[in-house]
Computed example of a mutant assay.
Amino acid sequence: MRFCTLVYFLLIISGLFGCKNFEKTRTIKLAHGLDVNHSVHLAMVKMGVDLNELSDGKLILEIYPSQQLGTERQCLELLQIGSLDMTKVSVGVLENFAPKMKVLGLPFLFRDREHAFKVLDGPVGRQLLEDGEKYWLKGLGYYDAGSRSFYTKDRPINSPEDLDGLKIRVMESVTAIDMVTSLGGSPTPISWGELYTSLQQGVVDGAENNPPSFYLSRHYEVCKYYSLDEHTVLPDVLLAGTHLWKRLSSEEKEWLTQAVENSISYQRKLWMESEKEALDAVQEAGVKIIRPDKTLFSEKIKGIYEQYKVNEELYRLIQEIQETR
């Protein structure tokens, strides 16, 4: 009698829920520090849609933008301990966690955007992503973050000499600090979320970033000079924590990898459009766009490359990058 009752109970449960409802749904939490209108965020939204379709609803992406879960550094720390699944950070911040990444932050390393993509999507880029795994960070790919240039409040930057005495906000990056120091400025690390107020209050005299970030952050309201010296081509890196990666099945990894690849292609297209839109918008808002002689800046930072000769592994990476055709 008890056996029949048990069978009857199981049949009722099966009928109510169906077999498919017992399939697990995994939610992946992704946090980043950018505005919801940024091309990176829009690409992540596409990633979530694609991931849902590829997995037939078994993998769900939850996105937390605008530093809701912390700064880029804090998100990396959350990844390392398994409290966050995925994030996007600048290579400049990532170098503090995965030291070899610092080579990508060297000024005037890439000849142009095409050269940068060949390096990032090729053996060197993959090697750098794989190197992060020893630090509990699984590199998934590179988003386009364009070229970084200086913007200032009170005076234009036409040559490195114009940086003398200016406090310039930089990321928490030794490479960025060395670069600004070599050019004559005073590097001041400040988190992205605090920068607008710091510019307003005069804590710093300027900063350096790409056109969309300059525009979407509304820093153009404070800084009226934008000097396109394009000193670094610093990509954004999409990462998963190794805690998450080890939990995923082979099939789930394939779904996520495909969704990531789709989002990278999509983001790079959006980026090209957003750069032009940003420059047009800040000019309309009264920002003076300056196009200085870049060789004046590149000549001043040659000493940075000399420092890397003592590290054979990093110097070899630099040579591989420069030789990529």
Rank of each mutant, 00 (worst) to 15 (best):
Y266M: 10
F9I: 14
K134G: 04
T152G: 04
D293K: 00
E306Q: 07
L234Q: 08
K58N: 10
E277L: 15
T5L: 14
E306R: 13
Y266I: 07
L244I: 13
Y266F: 15
A278Q: 00
K309R: 14
L10F: 11
G141M: 06
C75E: 13
S39T: 09
V40G: 01
E313Y: 13
V170L: 06
T87Q: 10
A259P: 13
G146A: 14
E95Q: 10
E284G: 03
F3Q: 08
G165K: 08
A259F: 01
Y142I: 04
L195Q: 08
S90W: 02
L78Q: 15
D121C: 09
R155A: 14
G146V: 02
E312T: 15
W271I: 07
G82L: 01
I304T: 11
S159Q: 14
D205S: 09
S182T: 02
T5E: 12
K246L: 08
R316A: 12
F97M: 04
T295K: 13
G33R: 05
R73V: 08
Q201R: 15
H219F: 14
M171T: 13
S90R: 00
R148D: 12
P189V: 00
S198K: 10
F9V: 06
F117W: 07
N262W: 00
V93Q: 03
G15A: 07
Q201Y: 15
L296C: 04
T87V: 08
L59Q: 01
V91Q: 03
E194T: 05
S198F: 07
V282M: 06
L183Q: 01
L256S: 09
Y266N: 04
M47R: 00
S191A: 08
R2H: 12
D50T: 04
K302E: 15
S83V: 06
L94M: 14
K300L: 03
K24G: 03
C223R: 01
L166H: 09
L163K: 00
M47V: 03
N37E: 09
K138F: 07
